[in-house]
């Protein structure tokens, strides 16, 4: 299924985020755990699926392939998608202010 600009899966979002710096598979997994403060431990199956799909959708590219390790980096299109998603998530947070107010009332 190719990316159509709609809401991303969490996995997609974090992989794009992590690829703001070029990186390869195994390191990405650790980086994602780091970036998410240990909240998200991404399995290699999920990671590999996201990588190959986003590569097909031109959101990321292979920047280096020395046969053993493949290094990926985000494309400008990928970065745009990431920023759009970031804005969407921000609106989600702003809209959720209602919940904070609710908590105050309690």
């Amino acid at each position: 299924m190719s990316y159509n600009g709609g809401p991303m899966t969490e996995a997609m979002y974090y992989v794009l985020l992590a690829l703001m710096r070029p990186n390869h598979g195994y390191q990405l997994m650790q980086l994602i755990t780091e970036v998410s403060n240990g909240r998200l431990k991404m399995g290699p199956g999920t990671l590999y699926g996201v990588l190959s799909r986003m590569q097909k959708d031109d959101l990321i590219v292979l920047s280096k392939d020395d046969g053993r390790r493949k290094t990926y980096e985000i494309t400008s299109e990928g970065e745009r998608a990431l920023r759009i998603e970031y804005e969407r998530l921000k609106s989600l947070i702003i809209d959720s202010a209602l919940l904070e107010e609710g908590e105050k009332h309690d």
């Binding site: 299924m1 899966t9 996995a11 991404m42 399995g43 290699p44 199956g45």
Partner: peptide, 16 residues
């Protein structure tokens, strides 16, 4: 060992 798939939605794409 950590699970291979941590996101069922993403795993569903492997079946396409």
């Amino acid at each position: 060992a950590p699970e291979l798939h941590t996101d069922p939605m993403e795993q569903s794409y492997t079946l396409d």
